[in-house]
């Protein structure tokens, strides 16, 4: 029963890896959108800054938030759905 009911997308159950990606300023595009365009699957829920699902580590660079998000973020963390790149950034996330 277990095997037959398992959908194909769950066959790969490998653990996630820490990935570092560098992004450049792009007008009107959030960090999350940039990463998705590059093909990374980032966990998200609200996409408006209140759930915190897309929280990731900022290794270097600078981002800006057009609107201050509600979700908690630590000193070196960013919420990918709500910020845009200002100065070339490197972010680290599990994916």
């Amino acid at each position: 029963m277990t095997e037959t009911t398992r959908p194909p997308h769950t066959k790969d159950n490998s653990t996630t890896d820490a990935r570092r990606v560098t992004l450049f300023p792009e007008r009107g595009v959030t960090v999350l959108q940039q990463l998705e365009r590059k093909g990374y699957r980032i966990p998200f829920q609200c996409r408006e800054g209140y759930c915190g699902a897309c929280r990731m580590t900022l290794i270097k660079g600078r981002v800006e938030y057009p609107e201050e998000p509600l979700a908690f973020r630590g000193a070196n963390e960013v919420l990918a759905c709500s910020c845009k790149v200002v100065v070339d950034v490197t972010v680290e996330f599990r994916g």
């Binding site: 769950t10 653990t15 609200c46 996409r47 699902a53």
Partner: peptide
């Protein structure tokens, strides 16, 4: 998210369709 080490090796989400359902 609370600054603790993961317990289960941070496996991938086995239910990727959850994201679309949770998107507000």
């Amino acid at each position: 998210a609370l600054g603790f080490e993961p317990l289960f090796g941070q496996p991938k989400n086995p239910l990727p369709w959850m994201d679309a359902w949770l998107q507000s």
